[in-house]
Amino acid sequence: MKAEQIRNLKTFDPAEYLNTDEAIAAFLEDAIESGDNRVFQEALSIAARARGMAEIAKAAGLGRESLYKALRPDANPRFDTVQRVLAALGVRLSVSAAP
C-alpha cells in the first residue's frame, strides 16, 4: 500500500458492530473466556460505548463520568458496578462448570 492509502484507512472500531444484545453478549463472552480481566474490562467499555455511555450510565444508575472512571484501563470496578453495567447493556453473567 502507498503511504496515502494507509493514511486514509479507517481505524477499526468494534463498537460499530455491536448493534444487538446478541452481538454484545458474544463479544463479552469471548472477552471473559480470555481469562484476562483487562480484556473483559476493555470489552465492557467498548460495549458501553456502542450503546452510548450516557444511556448506559443512566440505566446503571451511575453518573457518566463515574462510568468512564469505572471502565478506564487502570480501574478496578466493583463487582456490583460491573453487574449494573451488564444489566444496562441487556446481558447477564452466567456460571457453568469448567470443562
Rank of each mutant, 00 (worst) to 15 (best):
I32Q: 07
L89G: 06
L9E: 10
K10C: 04
A88Q: 06
G35W: 04
R7K: 13
E4G: 02
E65D: 12
V82P: 06
R38T: 06
A57C: 07
G63L: 09
M1D: 12
V95S: 02
P99A: 06
A48Q: 01
A15W: 05
N37H: 04
A23K: 09
A31H: 04
L93C: 03
N76S: 15
A47P: 04
E29S: 15
D80K: 08
L93F: 11
D21C: 00
D21W: 00
K10V: 14
A26K: 09
R7D: 13
N19A: 09
M1T: 09
V85K: 01
R7P: 00
E65R: 14
G63M: 05
A88T: 09
T11L: 13
L9F: 05
E55V: 15
S45R: 14
V85R: 04
R7C: 08
L44E: 09
Y17M: 05
L18T: 02
S34M: 07
V91T: 14
V91C: 06
F79N: 07
R38I: 02
R51M: 08
F12E: 13
G35K: 04
K2L: 12
G52H: 08
A87P: 00
E33T: 03
N8S: 11
A15R: 10
E22P: 02
S66H: 05
G90R: 09
R84V: 02
T20E: 09
S34Q: 05
D21Y: 01
A98H: 01
G52D: 12
A43Q: 02
G90N: 07
I46C: 05
A31N: 11
R51S: 04
A59T: 05
E16T: 08
L62R: 02
S66Q: 11
Y68W: 13
P14T: 13
K58I: 12
I6L: 10
K69A: 15
A47M: 10
D30P: 00
R84K: 15
L89Q: 09
L71K: 06
A59C: 05
K58G: 07
K2Q: 12
V95Y: 03
I46K: 06
A75H: 10
M1A: 12
A97P: 00
L71N: 11
G35E: 07
N76L: 13
E29R: 08
F40M: 09
D30V: 07
L93W: 01
R51P: 00
Y68F: 15
E29W: 02
R84N: 14
